[in-house]
Structure formats: C-alpha cells, structure tokens
Write a protein that binds this DNA or RNA. Structure first.
Length: 584
RNA sequence: GCCCCCGUAGCUCAGCUGGAUAGAGCAGUGGACUUCUAAUCCACCGGCCGCACGUUCGAAUCGUGCCGGGGGCACCA
C-alpha cells in the first residue's frame, strides 16, 4: 500500500504524474475501507478535473450503499502532496477538483524540467523487430506500417529510459537467392550493383524471376547456386554479399527519406541465425517436442488445429531439409531471451501473421525459452486500403513502391507550401515540404487504432486543418512566431497564474502528458499519443484565441504555457517520428 | 468446417481495465482577420453505437447467439 511519504516523493522527485498520484491516494483509502485492494478507476471528467469511480464497484462487493461507501473512502483520503477539493456526486462518484495554485505549481515543475515531467522508467531491455524488407526486392506499402509504427515505438520506449534494441529482420536468405545470384552473373556485377543501388529492385527481381520461369537451364543453375550458397562456397558467398550490401544501401536511403531511426547497425537479417538453426532443431528433438509429419520436422504446440481439425504443425525443418521461417523466428526468440536477456520482445508484423507468431511463441514457451517475467508480443496491425476499400495498389493493380509513395507525399506537400507559404525561402520551403509530406503519411498511420485497417487518402492526410500532422506542425510554428514577434525568450521559471478557463484547461492537459506516454508505451498504442497531441493543440488554439500573450499583464506566465505546449508538441511528435519545422 | 479481427454521424475515425447527457475531424449551413501566422477559430446541423437476448445500480464497452465485412488454417516468408 502506498504511503503518503512515498507519494510526496513521487510527486517531488520522480514522475510528476497527477493522475498516478490520485491512483495511489485513492487506492490507499479504498483498501482501508475494503480491507483488500480495489481499482480506484480514476478518470478525467467533464464535471471536475477527475472522477474516481472505484467506490461504486466496491459498494457492490460489500453490499452497501454506494454513496455511503464513497463518502467513507473520501474521508480516509490522505491528500499528502496534492491540493484538491472533492465531493461525492451522483450514485457514488467522487469528483476531484485540483486547486488552481497547485496546478500552477505542478506546471512550474514541468516547465523547469528537461523531460517535461516524464520520469525515467525502470529500464527494461526491449527488442523491437520492425521494417524487415527483402534483399533484392523493392520496399512497398506493405513495409510502411511496420516501419512507421515500429520506429515510433522504438523512439517512445527509448525516451522512457528503456534499453531499446532495434532489429531489422531483413530477408536475405532462401531459395530465391539462387536465381538472383545467377541473374547478377548474367548481367555483370557492375550493372547489377547499379540497378540495385539506384533502387530499381523490381526490375532486377522480375528479370530473374522471368528467366527462372522460362529458361530451364537458368532454373537449373539457380538450384545449384542455392546449394553452393548453403554450402558456403566462397565465390557464391561473395556475390550474395554484394546483393545484400547493395540492397542495404538502398534500404538506408529509403529510411533516410522516411526519417526513420534504423541504421546499418540494426540489420539483423535471417542469415544471422543460420548457424543456430541445426542446434535449435536438435534441442527441440532432445526435449521430445519434435515430431515427423509427412517428412517434415514439426512442433505441435497444444491448442492449434488446422482445417481438418487435426493438430496444426509448426514446421521447423521442411521435408527437403531446409529450414522454414518458423525455425528462424524461433531462433530470434531464443537469441533475444538468451544472449540479449530481453525483458520485452515486440514484433511489428501485420495481422495475417497472427497465427504464425502465436504458434512460434507457444513452441518457444514449451521449449522453455521464454521466462515467466518476459513479455513477448506480436504487435499486429491492419492493412492499408485504397479508396475502394481494397488493399492499396496502383491503378494497374501493381504494388506501390514505398519510395514513390514518399516522393509523392513530399511533392504534394511542396505544392501546398508554395501556395500557403510563398514568403519562405526556397530551401526552407523544401524542408517544410519534406516535414509536412512525410509527417502526413506517418501521422495518418499512427493516429488511428493499429489493429484496424486504414484508408489511404492523400487529401485527408494532407489537410491543413483537422486531425493531421500539418495542423499540429502549424500550431507549433505559431507558438514560435509569438516568441519571434515579441523578441522574447520564455523563462520557464516564471510564475504562472491560471485565471482564465482556457489557461487552466491547457495546463491540465499539459500535466497529463506523462500518463499518456505510459499508456501508449504499455499498450503499444501510438494513436493514444497522437490523439492527445491533437487535443492539446485544440486547447492551445482555444487559449490562443482568448488569451492575448504579448503585451498582456500575464505575459510571462502565458509565455510559459506557450513554451511548455510547444515543447510537449515537439517532443510528442518527435516520438512519433514527425519533424516540426521552425516556421511554416 | 474451425479460429482471429472489425462493425459508432453522409465520409474517416476516437471512446482508456463498464460509469453521469456517446466525442472529434471532414463534408453541409451560417459567421469571424485595422490586433501574437486565417495552413486558424466560433456556432449550427447530423447517431435504434450491426441485430437480439443476458450479466447489474449502470453496457458502445463484459457474455452468448445471429447478420455483415476482412484475414488465417503444413513445408513461400
């Protein structure tokens, strides 16, 4: 049970999270009344600052009148470092209203804190698997969500103080490499390197594929080449490295354009696990988990049935002796929980792979590779749909190259910038266009629930008002404009009074930032952060239209509100991977 | 056939472990720049929360069953 001294410490020294403080205070009071732990159910409320609903649930369990229980709980609250008034309302809600001076004091703490009141979490080792393009294949829209969502998660968890390991599970192994290497030899290394590095991967892959399908001689050479590759033939390995390296250069170029934090240090391709696969299969066998089925080596994790109702196999070794992706994924789990000692493993892969990951995790648990306290999670997400409600494709039905999508976003944004901000220099316009265009794509992805499909719509995501990146970026630019216009540097330590309702509402929302980040990180639901930022920008605009800053009697305090708002928006957007231009 | 996800305003979406009159943004209508960026704001209009039962003080939220949409179910990853 939290004590009041612990609470005071948490408010002063650590997280300046009022919501969390209320949870502590009311948990203690509820536990005193109940004799056991009760969820206080602290919520923001339109009728007060917060409402505490836990007494209602408790009353039912105790079989007592809710209002009476609520009052009893309220009487036992030790407010410790909090300053608020509270009363029982309705059927047994407890409405809590914070003192204005207390709010101002908390805002002062946040304003003078580099981290805006966000305490560093107890550090965990978190592995984040995301992006995962395939060597010698074009990155397409299918890689967009994994890359964007995974990168935002990596940024958020790092900021919260976790030891984040970004892992790019690049597809660099398997049977297609026979034909790719043979094609490379056919056209010559120089030409191949050129095609790959400039990003013409589709043509390269398709040419190889076409020959493989039409030319039996080529197909035969390809098959032999796979064998040579797997056997470690030096010349073959060198050519394979060439393919991988050129592709990695290309991926890094795309990441640069997308503004993603993945670097060359984060490539952890499939082939990384090659030497682990045979021992892994052996270990499964020794544990008695491996079964022969139609020539394949399989694990049958309990609880999975196939079309015919029979137990569903996880094929770790194919009947031809090759390893399936289940083997690689199992190896990846083992590597993370073993040498890396991961506390939390997140795999950012689309929903269609749900069953596969459930089976991999179940098998890994059976094998004892996932400790009790370790969280492993398939962070799934829905598809990107076109305006016709089907998977996003070109008009001709082709998959859309990611790089072309990004270029179109930037050029569409450039047209908007040229229209709205002709006063900016050309170079600045180009920077703003990039930030707005890429921001639009990312924000559209991150602002709605991950697990749902979302409809890709240029006009909506690039709208200048509404729930878009551009709107949030513009709000930041306007705040910066106040500082420039007034030639003032906000003093974060300046005293703040929250006399106007718009000032007070803005301050309340600013103080909710740490709780929002906690929730977003815990649930891996980035749209909660996006939604918060949009709401914050709305409250700021309300403040902006009602409260004159420059030249007002409250200038110093209002500048603090502007400053904290801007820093919160910029930080929040940065955690989503979105860049905020100085001016627009 | 079995399993998973989704169904909220004309459109695109929020709604946190059930909580008080269901919220935004677009679109529509009507307003607001001699004043810190109008890439803005304000007001109005708009909803049997897919349907039906059930659980309870209370259900968009939990349970069951339907209806509709999507995805998955052995050697491609």
């Amino acid at each position: 049970m939290p004590t009041s001294s612990a609470l005071t410490l948490s408010l002063i020294g650590g997280s300046m999270n009022i919501e969390h403080a209320l949870v502590c205070v009311f948990s203690a009071a509820l536990a005193e009344v109940a004799g056991f732990d009760v969820d206080p159910a602290v919520r923001r409320s339109p009728r007060a600052d917060f409402q505490v609903d836990g007494a209602l649930a408790l009353a039912r369990r105790l079989g007592r009148p809710p209002v009476q229980v609520a009052q009893e709980v309220l009487d036992r609250v030790d407010w410790a470092g909090l300053h608020a008034t509270a009363q029982v309302a309705g059927p047994g809600f407890i409405n809590v209203t914070l003192d204005d001076r207390f709010l101002a004091q908390e805002l002062h703490r946040v304003a003078t804190d580099e981290r805006l009141g966000v305490a560093a979490a107890t550090p965990q080792v978190v592995t984040i698997d995301y992006s995962a393009p395939n060597v010698a294949k074009e990155m397409h829209v299918g890689h967009l969500r994994s890359t964007v969502i995974g990168d935002a998660a990596a940024r958020l968890l790092s900021f919260l103080g976790h030891q984040v390991r970004r892992m790019n599970h690049v597809g660099d192994w398997g049977t297609p490499f026979g034909m790719l290497i043979e094609h490379l030899l056919d056209i010559g290394e120089t030409e191949a390197a050129h095609e790959l590095s400039v990003g013409d991967l589709t043509a390269f892959y398709q040419a190889a594929r076409a020959k493989f399908d039409s030319d039996p001689g080529f197909a035969q050479r390809s098959r032999l080449r796979v064998v040579a590759l797997q056997a470690g033939d030096e010349q073959t390995r060198r050519l394979w490295r060439l393919l991988v390296e050129e592709s990695e250069k290309y991926f890094l170029a795309v990441y640069g354009k997308l503004g993603v934090t993945l670097s060359d240090a984060d490539f952890l391709p499939e082939s990384f696990y090659n030497d682990e696969l045979a021992p892994l299969v052996k270990e499964l066998d020794e544990q008695g988990l491996l079964h022969d089925s139609q020539g394949a080596k399989c694990v049958f994790p309990p609880g999975f049935a196939g079309r015919d109702g029979e137990p569903l196999p996880l094929i770790v070794r194919k009947s031809d002796g090759g390893f399936g992706y289940a083997a690689t994924d199992l190896a990846s789990v083992k590597y993370r929980t073993g040498p890396l000692a991961a506390d939390r493993m997140l795999y950012f892969v689309g929903t269609p792979q749900r069953l596969h990951f459930e089976m991999v995790f179940a098998a890994a648990r059976q094998a004892g590779w996932i400790g009790e306290k370790v969280e492993v999670r398939h962070v799934n997400f829905g598809s990107i749909l076109g305006e016709d409600g089907k998977m996003l494709k070109t008009r001709a039905g082709q998959t859309i190259k990611l790089i072309e999508l990004l270029d179109e976003a930037v050029s569409r944004a450039a047209a908007i910038v040229a229209d709205k901000s002709p006063h900016l220099e050309a170079e600045t316009q180009a920077q703003v266009a990039w930030a707005v265009g890429i921001g639009a794509i990312k924000y559209a992805d991150l602002s709605s629930d991950r697990v749902k499909d979302y409809v890709f719509d240029w006009d909506r995501m690039l709208a200048t008002n509404g729930d878009t990146a551009a709107y949030l970026q513009y709000a930041c630019a306007r705040i910066g404009s106040i500082f420039r216009k007034g030639a003032v540097v906000p003093d974060p330590a300046a005293p703040v009074t929250l006399a106007h309702p718009a000032e007070r509402a803005l301050a309340m929302e600013l103080l909710a930032f740490p709780a929002v980040l906690d929730t977003a990180a815990r649930t891996v639901e980035l749209h909660r952060l996006a939604g918060y930022l949009f709401g914050l920008a709305g409250l700021y605009t309300e403040f902006y239209s009602h409260c004159r800053v420059l030249g007002s009697a409250e200038q110093a305090g209002r500048l603090v509100l502007c400053d904290v708002t801007r820093r919160t928006l910029v930080l929040g957007l940065d955690l989503l991977g979105i860049v905020v231009p100085e001016r627009m």
